[in-house]
């Protein structure tokens, strides 16, 4: 009965990631897409907030959006998993609802 949350805006531009993390429930998944992926970079200002939720929730970043921005899996906060488009679809299908943070 858990939720897939998506965040598609950079946390440096909008509060979407913060709001999302403030509203997740245990067992939810958070998927960073589009500009949202920049929040997952190791050493970034948001690394701590993401790491704090990682465990109770699963955090993902969309591979094609990382690649487009010159980022690799090894650049991300520990524990953040990379998924491709098929993985995105699987997550959406396996969760009960999708909540977008715009």
């Amino acid at each position: 009965m858990s939720t897939l949350h998506t965040v598609n805006k950079s946390p440096f531009e909008r509060s979407s990631l913060k709001s999302c993390l403030d509203h997740v429930s245990a067992g939810d998944a958070v998927l960073l897409i589009e500009d949202g992926v920049v929040g997952a970079r190791k050493g970034s200002q948001f690394a701590g907030a993401l790491a704090a939720k990682n465990g109770a929730c699963a955090i993902y970043a969309l591979g094609p959006d990382l690649a487009a921005r010159g980022m690799k899996a090894s650049d991300l906060v520990d524990g953040v998993k990379v998924v491709d488009y098929a993985g995105f679809v699987d997550l959406a299908a396996e969760k009960s609802r999708v909540c977008a943070w715009l």
Binding site: M1, S2, D22, H23, V24, S25, R97, V98, C99, W101
Partner: peptide, 18 residues
């Protein structure tokens, strides 16, 4: 409050964001 809002979201069939 925020915790209740999280529960409200978790209780939906469909969430539409704007």
């Amino acid at each position: 409050d925020r915790a209740e809002m999280s529960k409200i979201i978790a209780a939906q069939d469909v969430v539409l964001s704007f």
